[in-house]
Amino acid sequence: MRHEIVVARPPHEVWDVLRDVGAVHRRLLPGRVLDVSIDGRVRTLTMPDGHVVRELIVDVDDDARRLAYAVIEGARPPLEHHHATFQVFDEADGQSRLVWVTDILPDAPAGLIRERTAYGVYEMKRVIEQA
């Protein structure tokens, strides 16, 4: 799955939000993520309903403005594999292009995951632009 969206903020500002992996609940998805904790490379997200998702932070590349992560526990629906990246690119007029690529297995829940990520990228855009 691939989502691209233009964000009306400079790339360094968008990247600053994305690279702050321990502040998803405050800076990227407030209300959608209740709390975040970090233990080494593992990020634990607590959702408003109490559900917990554990993610492995694979890479935070400041030069490429690219974040790679994988869900390792707590995916709903359960997945055999989940890997995703965010990347921030320069766009005209000082704006940014945010690209979110997600790979999952099995393919069966792809429609549901695509719908969630499509909504999520618009939610992120709104939050970042309002900051």
Score class of each variant (00 low, 15 high):
6 V>Q: 04
82 H>K: 10
68 A>E: 09
96 S>E: 03
63 D>F: 02
45 L>R: 09
64 A>K: 15
80 E>L: 14
113 I>Q: 10
43 R>C: 07
58 V>P: 00
77 P>K: 13
21 V>G: 08
92 A>T: 06
44 T>D: 04
28 L>A: 13
127 V>P: 00
107 D>V: 11
102 T>W: 01
116 R>T: 07
114 R>L: 09
31 G>T: 02
20 D>F: 04
20 D>Q: 10
87 Q>D: 11
109 P>D: 08
31 G>R: 10
109 P>I: 13
57 I>R: 07
27 R>D: 10
23 A>S: 15
19 R>I: 06
29 L>G: 03
81 H>K: 12
105 L>D: 07
28 L>I: 08
64 A>V: 04
76 R>S: 14
104 I>M: 03
84 A>V: 01
109 P>V: 13
98 L>C: 13
57 I>V: 12
93 D>G: 04
66 R>N: 03
59 D>I: 00
115 E>Q: 14
107 D>P: 01
131 A>R: 15
112 L>R: 15
64 A>H: 08
7 V>H: 06
121 V>W: 04
44 T>W: 09
107 D>I: 10
96 S>T: 00
42 V>M: 12
28 L>H: 05
80 E>A: 14
6 V>I: 00
32 R>N: 05
107 D>Y: 10
12 H>M: 06
73 E>W: 04
52 V>P: 00
14 V>I: 03
119 Y>D: 09
61 D>F: 03
115 E>K: 14
4 E>S: 15
31 G>Q: 05
127 V>M: 03
5 I>S: 02
42 V>K: 12
41 R>G: 07
89 F>C: 05
90 D>F: 03
68 A>W: 02
128 I>W: 01
62 D>F: 01
67 L>K: 10
43 R>T: 07
17 V>T: 11
